[in-house]
Each structure stands twice: as C-alpha cells, then as structure tokens.
C-alpha cells in the first residue's frame, strides 16, 4: 500500500464517519432546525472528504477539478435548500425560544 492509497483510505473513512454522524443526527435530533443542521453541515463535510479521497485516488488534475466543482455545487445547492426549508418552517410556525437572550 503506497502512501497515496493510505491517504485515500483515511479520507474516505473520515467522509463515511461524517455521513454516519449526519444520518444519526437526522434520526435522533428533536426538531426540523437541528435536523437540518446535522444534515447539511455533517454531510457536506463528509462529501468533501470523500471528494478529496476520490480526487487523490484518480490522480488526474482535470478529474480533480471536476470532483471539486461537484462538491462546490452540492455545497451551494444544499446550503440554499437548507436555508429555504428553515425559512419556510420559521414563517409557518416560529421556533419556541428556549431562552430569551438580550
């Protein structure tokens, strides 16, 4: 196993870990806002790790650029949809403030 393969495996495992954490968050968190948080933050990070791992594995600059742009577009799309869903939910029934802070 070369050093590149080792890094690829480490990156992929890290990506899978974040995906797992995000999925766990979606299943266990109590309301929509926290679930959105788990889904978008953790999954985007996981996708980033997996994209980096795959780019390292393919080891061609063009493929790396394509994979990086896939990650970038997913980041943009998922954060936008997260924002839109959260805003819709907030307008429909605003979250109960756990603690009013000045």
């Amino acid at each position: 196993m070369t050093i590149t393969e080792l890094f690829t495996v480490i990156l992929l495992v890290a990506g899978c870990f974040f995906f797992l954490a995000g999925t766990l968050g979606v299943l266990r968190f109590p309301d929509l806002f926290t679930r959105l948080h788990a889904l978008t933050k953790a999954d985007n990070l996981g996708l980033g790790f997996i994209a980096a791992g795959m780019a390292l594995h393919i080891a061609s600059p063009w493929a790396a650029i394509k994979i990086f742009s896939i990650w970038l577009f997913t980041l943009l799309a998922s954060s936008t949809s997260c924002y839109l869903i959260a805003r819709f939910q907030k307008e429909k029934n605003p979250p109960k403030n756990r603690k009013e802070e000045g």
């Binding site: 577009f73 943009l76 799309a77 936008t80 924002y83 839109l84």
Partner: peptide, 9 residues
C-alpha cells in the same frame, strides 16, 4: 439568497 443562487446556477 435564492435569487443569487439561481443567477449563479
């Protein structure tokens, strides 16, 4: 936000 993202995409 939606407008900007749509214009970007």
């Amino acid at each position: 936000v939606l407008q900007q993202v749509i214009l970007f995409f």
